[in-house]
Design a protein around this nucleic acid. Structure first.
Length: 109
DNA sequence: CCCCTGACTGGAA
DNA sequence: GTTCCAGCCAGGG
């Protein structure tokens, strides 16, 4: 495991914690914020280690607003429930009115 | 070293 | 607007 990789993972967790309540962002947005625009998949990969950490992984979805990572949660619909608890409308693993709840980390720079 | 998989994205259809 | 294809980086067999 290279130090840079560890830093990258740590950065991902750091940004994920910055996501406001009731908002969501995409893997690519985080990757771009870290300067690794082409490593969006690695962001999701990093989230694999988010278990047990204070990382709100449920607020991170793909650019279509689809809950692609819900299968990695304990329950089948746990991720959706968490989002709905924050006032985010989710139907069939897809976020409704995505533009209203979308938050880009690049805008806080 | 080669091949496959994956919580993805942008561009084309 | 969605769906499909190829490219992308990193890790594991």
């Amino acid at each position: 495991m290279k130090p840079e990789t560890l830093n990258f993972f740590d950065k991902v967790y750091e940004v994920a914690r910055l996501i406001p309540y009731g908002k969501v962002t995409s893997y690519g947005a985080i990757a771009r914020y870290l300067g690794a625009a082409r490593s969006a998949r690695m962001v999701g990969y990093a989230m694999n280690g988010s278990g047990g950490k204070d990382v709100p992984a449920h607020r991170v979805v793909n650019r279509k607003g689809l809950l692609t990572g819900k299968h990695h949660f304990d329950g089948t619909n746990l991720m959706q429930q968490l989002l709905e608890s924050e006032g985010i409308e989710v139907v069939d693993n897809q976020i409704q009115n995505l533009e209203s709840v979308y938050w880009d980390p690049n805008e806080l720079k």
